[in-house]
Design a protein around this nucleic acid. Structure first.
Lengths: 198, 198
DNA sequence: CCCTTTTCACCTAGGTGGTAAGAT
DNA sequence: ATCTTACCACCTAGGTGAAAAGGG
C-alpha cells in the first residue's frame, strides 16, 4: 500500500533525513500510496499529517543519531496536508496511485496561515507521516481535521528526522543518486558520451 | 466575471486564433473567471466546453478571415474539460479566481480517450468556450456532463478560430508581447541592461 | 561551536513561435 | 497551393545539494 516502499527502505536503513527550509522543501522520497476497498461513488478526503515520534531533540554525533534533551512540547503550525484532489470519489482515489510529491516541509512558523501546501516541523526532531482517508458527507466543509469515519495508516519506513542541512553523508548520496533534481551532483557523467561513432 | 477581459478584448479585435497541436497546446489568453453567488457549503463541478460558432470552414485570405464551404458536422472527440479542483465547495470556487491555464487544445481525435486535459477541435473552425457550474449531490460521479442544476456562461470575447499555424501577424505579435513563454521572440531586449553603474 | 540562512550552478520539466520538411 | 508536422533555440518555472555567510 506504500507505493515506493523499496526506496523508502533504502533510506530508512540509514535513518532518513528531510531538509526543511523557510520557503518549504519537498520530501524525497515522497509519499505515494495505492488505495483499495473504498466505495467508488462515496466522497473522500485524503490527507497526510506528520507527528512527533518521541519527545527528544536529536543530534548527529560521531556518525550516529543520539537523543539529546527534551523537545519543546508541540509547537504551533500546520501539520496537516490535504491532497489537492480532495474531495473526490472512491473511484478516483483507487484509479491510480495517490502521491504527495508537492507536499513541502518548512520550519517557518509564520507559514502556518493560508499556506496549505506546507507542513511546519521543528529541526532535529523525529517525525512519522500518517495517511488519513476520510469519508465526507454533503454539506461538510473540505477543511475539517479527520475525525469520524477516518481510516489512518502509518508506515514506520517513512519516519525521518527534520534537518536544515544533511548530517549523514550516506543519506546525501542516496538523495543525489535517486532524486532527478539532484542529477547535477552525480559523478556518473564520466566517459561523457562514448558515442556510437567513436 | 471574465477575469482577464482586457487581454481577451485586445485579441478579439483582431479575431483571436488558437494553435492546436497533436500533443495539445495551451490557450493564450487562458480562461479565468470570478465566481459569486454560490452556496459556500454545497459542492460544485466547474468545467469548460468549446462549441462551434457556425457551420463553416474559415480561410485567411487577403488579410481577412472569410467563410469557405461547410463544416464536416460535429466530429467525435472530447470537448469538455473539468476544472482539476472539481468537485469542490462553493466557498472554494469563490475564494479566488478560477483559471483554466492548463487546458489544452488538440486536433488529435485519438486523444479523446483517457486524456481529460485535452479538448479536441477542428482546424480552421470558429469556436466559443463556455463555462458551466454544476451543483453535485452525494453519490453522483464526477464525470457526468452538466445537465440539471447547471449555470452556463458565455463570453463572446473568448471566441477564436483554431489553427495549426498563425495566419494574422497581429495575433502573433499579441501572443509574443503578452505570453511569458514567448519572451524569446520579443525585440525588446535592446539597450541590454543600461546598468546602474554605466 | 553548532545550527540556520542565503546564494549559486546545475539540473528537470515543459511552454513559446519560427522554420523547414512533409502531406494532401 | 494550402495546411500540418517535427524539430529547434529560447524562454519560464522551479527543485537539487554545495558552499559560504550569518546568528546565537
Amino acid at each position: 500500500m506504500l507505493n515506493n516502499y523499496p526506496l523508502w527502505a533504502k533510506f530508512h536503513k540509514h535513518q532518513t533525513e528531510m531538509i526543511i527550509t523557510k520557503q518549504g522543501r519537498r520530501m524525497f522520497p515522497f509519499l505515494s500510496f495505492n488505495l483499495t476497498g473504498l466505495d467508488p461513488v462515496a466522497h473522500y478526503n485524503v490527507c497526510v499529517d506528520i507527528v512527533l515520534v518521541d519527545q527528544h531533540h536529536w543530534r548527529y554525533q560521531g556518525g550516529k543519531w543520539v537523543q539529546c534533551g527534551k523537545a519543546e512540547g508541540n509547537m504551533p503550525g500546520n501539520r496537516l496536508y490535504v491532497h489537492p484532489d480532495s474531495p473526490n470519489t472512491g473511484a478516483h482515489w483507487m484509479r491510480q496511485e495517490v502521491s504527495f510529491g508537492k507536499l513541502k516541509l518548512t520550519n517557518n512558523k509564520g507559514a502556518s496561515n493560508n499556506v496549505t501546501q506546507m507542513i511546519v516541523l521543528q529541526s532535529l526532531h523525529k517525525y512519522q507521516p500518517r495517511l488519513h482517508v476520510t469519508e465526507v458527507k454533503d454539506g461538510e466543509g473540505d477543511e475539517s481535521y479527520p475525525s469520524a469515519h477516518t481510516q489512518t495508516f502509518t508506515f514506520p519506513e517513512t519516519q525521518f528526522i527534520a534537518v536544515t542541512a544533511y548530517q549523514n553523508a550516506d543519506i546525501t548520496q542516496l538523495k543525489i543518486d535517486h532524486n532527478p533534481f539532484a542529477k547535477g551532483f552525480r559523478d556518473n557523467f564520466d566517459s561523457l558520451y562514448t558515442t556510437s561513432e567513436s
